[in-house]
Amino acid sequence: MKKEIIIAGFGGQGVLSMGKILAYAGLMQGKEVTWMPAYGPEQRGGTANVTVILSDDPIASPLLQKYDIVVVLNQPSMDKFEPRVKPGGILIFDPNGMTRVPERKDINVYRIPATDTAAALGQVKTFNMFVLGGLLKVDPVVELDKVMLGLKKSLPERHHKLLPANEAAMLKGGEIIEKL
């Protein structure tokens, strides 16, 4: 098993932490993992993306041209990464702020209204967990309980009281994702 995933969006959307949670969960399942951020002069509103690879075998390059799963959370990221989904692969997008839907017919496209749902539920800060829950619904690359363990590991202890809200967001994310 080898899954090559990129998550891309604006800085501040929790893109890097989403990747981190996936990576920790993979680690706990005994996978080889790499987590490679497109690091830059990070700022809220700037672009951010992270490549996460989960594999049963040692991972060669931590950076790739094509991905099994692409998650895009803003229009520039969709424009950049839609062409880089492997044929038959998965593209997940949040329609919030998007000016178009994905055009490719040779991939599986999923829509998750995570921004709107999170806002409606007053859970804006767990936005990324809705997306992660959606991702795991369409391709369970890691087990849900490992994700919660991974989240616990990547969150400082003072934030552990937020774990239930994050779990709820993840489960909700699984409900609101739909195939186009």
Partner: peptide
């Protein structure tokens, strides 16, 4: 280099 420094792995 920046890849090895910034990348997380096991």
């Amino acid at each position: 280099d920046g890849v090895i420094g910034q990348m997380m792995e096991k």
